[in-house]
Structures are given as C-alpha cells and as structure tokens.
Design a protein around this nucleic acid. Structure first.
Lengths: 227, 227
DNA sequence: AAGATTTGGCTGAACGTTCGTTCAATAGAC
DNA sequence: GTCTATTGAACGAACGTTCAGCCAAATCTT
C-alpha cells in the first residue's frame, strides 16, 4: 500500500491538506516577520501562500486559531531542537554546550523566527491562550537547564546556587535573542556563544574554562541560513 | 505674574494641554498593557483618558505618532532612571549595583510597563521608526555598562573580556524582564537581583563576593507599586 | 475693572476604508 | 457519481480620520 513518496510532492488528499495547512502557517510566520503582528492580515497570508482569500477560514476556524497554531508550530520546532541536541552528549557539561549551540543555531535563531517569537511575546499578557501554548514547553526547558546546572554544580562542588545559575543562563540567551532582534548588525553567533561561555566558565571554572572558545569562532557557526 | 500653582491643578491653557497630552500617553500605556498592541484602539484610549473620541487626532497627527510619542516617553523615563542611579555612587562597582537596582525598581520594572516594552519590541522589526526612538538610548546604556565593567575589570585585573561581560549582564537583565512578563508568578525582584549578582560575583569576585546578598532580601525591594 | 471679541482646546457625529467571516459555486480526487 | 478542498464575491462590523460647532480661557477695548 505504502508506496515510496517524496515529501516534496504530496499526492493523496489528506497529504495535500496537511501540506497547505503547513504552507499557511509558514506564510503567517513570514507576514508577521515582515509586517508585524498588528498589520498581519489574512489577505496577506493567503496571498503569500498563493491560495485564495477564504481558504484560511476553511483550515482554521478563525484568525486567532491560525495564530495559535503558528505559535504551536514554533514551540514544537524549538522543543524538538533542544531535545535532539541534549540527547546526544553523555555528560551534563556537554549537554549544556549542546543546548547553547542549539539555541543559537540558524534553524531556530534567525531574524525571521525571532521576530515572530517577540511578536507573540508582545501579545502574551493580553492573550493568555498564547501562554497556554508555550508555557509547558518553556517550563520543560527551564527544568532541563536547571537539572544540568545542578549536576555540574554537584560534580564540581561549586559554592553557588544552581537554580540561580540556570535562571541566569536562560535569561542571558533570551536577552541575546533580543539583541539579534533589535540590533542585528551587532549580533554574531560566536559572540553570543562566547558571552554565555564566559558566564559558564566563571561559575563552573573546572568544567568550562578551557580551549572551548577557539572552536566557536569556526566558520560552522557563521553560516547563516535565514531560511 | 507667576503665582504659586500646584502641579495637581493646571490652570493656564498650555499647562492643561500638556496635561491631557500626558494623560493620553498614560492611557495608551494602560490600553496596550491590558489589550495588547494589535487590539489597541483610539476609542479605548480616549475612553480610558476620559476624553472625547476625536481628541487624539488633535494632539497627535495620527495613531502612529501617538505610539511613537508613547515609546519616547517610556524611553526617556528609563534613561532618566538609570542616569540618576549612576550619578550618586563614586566607584564603578557601586555604579553597577545602582544600575541593577534601578533596572529592577518598581517604577520602571512592573508588569504594565514591561508589557508595553515587549509590545513595542515585537513590532520593532517591521516599524523602523520605533528603533530610531529607542536605539540611541539603548546604545548609551550599553556604553555605560561596558565602561563600568571595563573599569572594574581593570581594577581587579580579571582575565576576562569586559565587553562580553557587559553584554552578558545586559542580556541577563533583559531576560529577567521577559520572565516578569511571561511568568510573573515566578518573578521576584530579589531573585532577579541575586541572579545578576551571582554572575557579577563569579566574574568579578574581589568586587562583588561579599555580604551583598543579604541586603537584597530586604523589604525595600519587595514593595511592588504597580502604579 | 468689566464687558466685548478672539483664540484654541475639545466634542461627537459622520465618512470612507479595511478586515474577518460567510457561503454558494466549482473543479478535481476518490 | 460523490465528496471535499478551494475559489472569489459579498456582507457587516470596527477602525482611523475628518470637521463643523461649542465653550471657556486669553486678549483687547473702553
């Protein structure tokens, strides 16, 4: 039954439906990144997705739900990224490094998606639905960072508060995302990584004080695929 | 000519005009904090400011300019706050501490105003006018933090990159603001302060490793005047 | 000093536009 | 032939903006 189908060309109806649905979400991300949350319009979304004006209300019950599903898509992509990153390494130290690398990887950390994240965050207080979508994932991420910092702290016997250290690291990465959003010309991935690494090296010197800095100027971090 | 006038009751026409202008900006902040940027409406603003519907277009040429002036007001208030904080202490160490205390003071760091900040940041990419308003002030703040970190680093002869340390501190405070915005129930001023202080103590141990932590649990930090 | 006149902040209704949503008609996959 | 994803026109609501009129403060006149 299951023939060999490429992901590029959906043939069955349910596949096609799911494809256009994803297409609409992708178009929503592009429109928000380009025009902002307030000027995001279903007409613009349908135009960018190359579909008719009324199709959005067929796939999504309302504009609001399209936005919720867009945020859900972003949240899941981010969660999958850091879960995959943290799965490979063995030690807590290397897991933390992988987490940072994932946080600044071009797939999740590019101007377009950061703009959409901040657009949603800007509306978060007035629309609790958005919080319901991403809060569990954010809490899971915070737990993971705190657990890893706790392990490293225990290993090294550092006289610091691991919860505070984890909070500081999370907030620092969020702030670095903000720098990419507001002053992209002054943002560089390797600088962002080194900023976090200097912090980690200061609180966990035995684990992070080393030649790690040299690796991160490598060209691998500089490839900026804004797709 | 100049009679003794209280600031509470403007009598002359120009005073009254300036007062209602400020009233409209204050109402704008409240509406954005309550309903979000996308649902902010001139009707809501005029209703909250207790003025008629068409008055906004008398004081401001358009809705867009009302928003720009609101952001300008917010930016100047924040700039004045950290300038005043940094003026009193003598040493770079104490100036940094005062900067942090100002950053988390209830006057600038409360749910309402943080929500408005993030609302504007969410629209920053698509409306460069907003960036023009706050970019100079942000740059001045960044310069100040970097200068102070540089002084402390030189004093202590710490083997770290002062620019990276300053960037890390700025991003950490921005991220802590985001925490207040997204998960206000898990935010506490003293915890935010301690998060930053643990960072400073780690990179500048001779300057910030001390009994500073105890002070910050004082009730003075806990007074949350969300006005 | 007091009335007369001008000035300017302020009102609220009206207008034109834009947006989200609905729905009958259509075309292509099953 | 049936079902369903898709179209595009149409509708109603909501929004930003405009404007003629109003009233009190400021200025001028006597």
């Amino acid at each position: 039954m299951d023939q060999a189908r490429k992901a590029s060309a959906p043939v069955t109806r349910v596949e096609k439906k799911q494809a256009t649905r994803q297409q609409l979400i992708a178009a929503t991300i592009e429109v928000i990144a380009a025009d902002g949350f307030a000027d995001m319009t279903l007409a613009k979304v349908s135009q960018r997705a190359r579909v008719s004006r009324g199709l959005v209300n067929f796939h999504f019950t309302s504009k609001e739900q399209l936005l919720v599903e867009t945020l859900r898509s972003l949240t899941e992509e981010y969660r999958d990224a850091w879960r995959k990153a943290v799965a490979k390494p063995k030690t807590a130290r290397d897991k933390l490094l992988a987490l940072l690398r994932a946080d600044f990887s071009p797939k999740v950390c590019n101007r377009k998606k950061i703009a959409v994240w901040y657009a949603f965050w800007g509306e978060a207080k007035s629309r609790p639905t958005y919080l319901d979508v991403c809060a569990p994932a954010d809490a899971a991420f915070a737990d993971m960072v705190e657990r890893l910092c706790g392990e490293v702290a225990e290993e090294g016997g550092y006289p610091i508060d691991a919860a505070l250290a984890a909070r500081g690291l999370r907030c620092m990465t969020d702030g670095l995302w903000l720098e990419l959003h507001m002053t992209p010309q002054s943002f560089r991935r390797d600088v962002a990584m080194r900023t976090c690494l200097q912090y980690l090296a200061a609180i966990f010197p035995k684990h992070f004080l080393g030649s790690e800095f040299d690796h991160l100027t490598a060209a691998a971090l500089e490839t900026e695929a804004e797709a």
